[in-house]
C-alpha cells in the first residue's frame, strides 16, 4: 500500500472525488495555481482545469457564500479556508445559510459543501494561526464537524464528507500534516512514512462520518481525544504507565456516543482532552454526555485538559499547548480519585 503524508492523503481524496463526480469543484485562496499554502490541492488545477479548481480573492465570506449558492443548485463545492483562524468573516454564511437551508426550505434545497481548514497549534503561529474553533461549529445544528488524526482517516473521511448531502466543516490539525505529534516538540517528528497510519489505499474508500475509533485499548480510564491530542494522550499513557483506553472521536458531529459510553462504563473514569480553550469547549459537551449516560459507572469526576482560556500566545507556546505532562497529570488524578 502506498505511504502518504496527511497532505498527500487529502489531495488524493479530493482528486478521487473530482474524478468520480463532475459536480465537485475546489477553490479558495491560493488553491489553484499555487496548489494551496500547505500544498493540499497541488496539481489539481493542471489535472481538472481552471473551471473546477481555482483561486479566489481573499474573501472568506464570498468563498463560502458562493459555495452555498453553488451547492443549492447542484454542485458539490469543496472549499479551503486557508487557516481556521480566517473563517470568521464566513461564519455568518455558515451559520445562517449553510446550516439552515435544508430546514428552511422544507428539504427542497440542501447544502452539500465541505469547508476544509487547517487548525490547531504547535507551529509557532501565534494568535491568528493556531486556533481550534471547532466548538463554534458544534454549537450550530445543521452542520457536521470532522477532525481526522492521520492520513488514512483524513482521506476516508474527506471522501465521505464530499459525498455527504449536508455541510461538513473539516478541520485538518496542521501539526499532523507531516507526521504524528505527541507534544514533545524537542524531539524530531516521525514522518508518516514510518507510521502504520501513513499507509493509505491509493483508490476510493470512505471512513464513515460519526464513527469513532479506539486507538489504544485499556481498562483503567477512557481518554476522549481528537486530532493532535490523540498522540499526546498516547504519550501520556505511555509515560504514566496508566492503562488508558484512548478514543479518537474523528467526527464531533455526529458523535459516536455508543463507543464513548461503552468504554466509560468499562473503565469507570474519563478524561477529555482538546487543544481548544476550556470554557464552553467541546469537552464540556463530552463531559455532560458522559455524566448523563455513565453517571452510575463513574468512579471519578470527568477531567478536562485543554488550552488555557486565553488567546494563543506567540511566546510560551509550550506552556499553552496541553502536552503529555498535563494530560498525564489528569490521568493520575482520575486514577487517584
Amino acid at each position: 500500500m502506498p505511504r502518504m503524508t496527511m497532505i498527500e492523503a487529502i489531495r488524493s481524496a479530493i482528486d478521487i472525488a473530482m474524478e468520480r463526480d463532475r459536480r465537485v469543484v475546489v477553490f479558495g485562496e491560493d488553491v489553484g495555481y499555487f496548489g494551496g499554502v500547505f500544498r493540499c490541492t497541488a496539481g489539481l488545477q493542471q489535472k481538472y482545469g481552471r473551471t473546477r479548481c481555482f483561486d479566489t480573492p481573499i474573501s472568506e465570506l464570498g468563498i463560502v457564500g458562493t459555495a452555498i449558492g453553488m451547492a443549492a443548485y447542484g454542485l458539490k463545492p469543496c472549499v479551503e479556508v486557508q487557516f481556521a483562524d480566517y473563517v470568521y468573516p464566513a461564519y455568518d454564511q455558515i451559520v445562517s445559510e449553510a446550516a439552515r437551508i435544508r430546514y428552511r426550505s422544507n428539504g427542497q434545497f440542501t447544502c452539500p459543501i465541505v469547508i476544509r481548514m487547517p487548525s490547531g497549534g504547535g507551529i509557532f503561529g501565534g494568535q491568528t494561526h493556531s486556533q481550534s474553533p471547532e466548538a463554534l461549529f458544534t454549537h450550530v445544528c445543521g452542520l457536521k464537524v470532522v477532525v481526522p488524526s492521520n492520513p488514512r482517516d483524513a482521506k476516508g473521511l474527506l471522501i465521505a464528507a464530499i459525498d455527504d448531502p449536508d455541510p461538513v466543516i473539516f478541520f485538518e490539525p496542521k501539526r499532523l500534516y507531516n507526521g504524528p505529534f505527541d507534544g514533545h516538540h524537542e524531539r524530531p517528528v516521525t514522518p508518516w512514512s514510518r507510521h502504520p497510519l501513513g499507509e493509505v489505499d491509493a483508490g476510493h474508500f470512505t471512513v464513515p462520518l460519526g464513527k469513532a475509533e479506539v486507538r489504544r485499548k485499556g481498562d483503567s480510564v477512557t481518554v476522549l481525544a481528537y486530532g493532535t491530542m490523540v498522540y499526546v494522550a498516547e504519550a501520556a499513557a505511555e509515560e504514566t504507565g496508566i492503562d488508558a483506553e484512548i478514543i479518537d472521536l474523528r467526527t464531533l458531529l455526529p458523535l459516536d456516543l455508543d463507543c464513548i459510553v461503552e468504554s466509560v462504563r468499562k473503565t469507570g473514569r474519563c478524561v477529555v482532552v482538546h487543544e481548544a480553550t476550556l470554557t464552553s469547549g467541546f469537552g464540556a459537551e463530552l463531559a455532560a454526555l458522559v455524566q448523563e449516560h455513565c453517571f452510575y459507572h463513574l468512579e471519578a469526576p470527568v477531567g478536562r485538559v485543554t488550552g488555557w482560556d486565553t488567546p494563543y500566545p506567540h511566546a510560551q507556546e509550550w506552556d499553552y499547548f496541553p502536552g503529555p505532562a498535563r494530560v498525564g497529570e489528569a490521568l493520575v488524578r482520575a486514577m487517584e480519585a
Partner: peptide
C-alpha cells in the same frame, strides 16, 4: 506585546 503577539501583533 511582551512576546505574546509576535511579528504581526
Amino acid at each position: 506585546s511582551k512576546g505574546k503577539g509576535g511579528s504581526m501583533h
